[in-house]
């Protein structure tokens, strides 16, 4: 193992994903290799159908790969059974989905504690206070999701992902359903948790502004990695997106 791979929080090695078989088969990923740096905020970008969500699902162990290998930390994800995958998700991975992140029957606090409760772990009280203070939910903890705004709900989801200090947090279009102000709040909060607390985050998005919050943006087109940017601005991202066709052709 190289020094770089040891530092990776999640890694894909020549990952192929084919849906269906034979002539009807659709290839979603074609030999993607990606290493997600520890303590970094990585964005995966690409147009619809580029395979960005598939890549994230494979990295997170939600979907199986057809060929290649996926690691989260030191754990080889490909080939794990349901039990081990469940434990991996529970202990090493945090999730933030685009919508429907919370259980309507539980309060905000119970939702945040859910993964810890399932695992039978206790939250570190200091870290708990930090997370709650950062997401600004101290006075909303007893509310149920239906009593919270969309932005607040997403912040609860972020807190839930963070509170277990997972190896890596996967966020799938976390701002897709929010207005720009709430979205900016959530993104700023994600970036702060990387900067201040060394959390690793992988975010899938198609929004250049959202991507500009990341330390590194990788571009996917037609199931292949075609480009990447470090510390990008929204304009850089938009530019690259515009030229993706050319890049695909070059690749």
């Amino acid at each position: 193992m190289t020094a770089q791979s040891q530092a990776a929080a999640a890694r894909a090695d020549d990952v192929w994903k084919v849906y269906g078989t034979g002539e009807a088969g659709v290839t979603a990923l074609r030999g993607v290799s990606l290493s997600v740096g520890r303590g970094r905020f990585t964005a995966i970008m690409g147009p619809s159908g580029s395979g960005k969500s598939t890549l994230m699902h494979c990295l997170a162990g939600l979907d199986t790969v057809t060929r290649g290998e996926v690691f989260v930390g030191d754990t080889r994800v490909s080939g794990l059974g349901d039990k081990a995958l469940t434990r991996l998700r529970r202990d090493k991975i945090g999730f933030i989905f685009q919508q429907f992140n919370l259980l309507p029957t539980l309060t905000a606090e119970e939702n945040i504690r859910l993964p810890l409760d399932i695992a039978g772990r206790k939250a570190d009280p200091q870290w708990w206070d930090t997370v709650i203070a950062t997401v600004g939910l101290a006075d909303r903890l007893r509310h149920r999701p239906a009593q919270l705004s969309g932005g607040q709900q997403q912040r609860v989801a972020c807190a839930r992902a963070l509170v277990g200090r997972p190896e890596v947090i996967f966020a799938d279009e976390p701002t897709g359903n929010l207005d720009s102000r709430s979205g900016a709040e959530v993104l700023g909060f994600l970036r702060d948790s990387v900067r201040a607390h060394g959390q690793t985050i992988v975010m899938v998005t198609h929004d250049p502004v959202a991507a500009s919050y990341a330390d590194r943006v990788v571009f996917l087109a037609d199931g292949a990695l075609v480009s990447e940017l470090d510390d990008p601005t929204a304009e850089d991202v938009l530019d690259t997106m515009k030229h993706l066709d050319v890049l695909v052709g070059a690749a």
Binding site: K83, F95, F97, N101, L103, P115
Partner: peptide
């Protein structure tokens, strides 16, 4: 269904 998916995603075993 979606709720169950979420619960499974955050680590609820079978």
């Amino acid at each position: 269904t979606r709720e169950l998916g979420l619960l499974r995603a955050v680590g609820l075993g079978r």
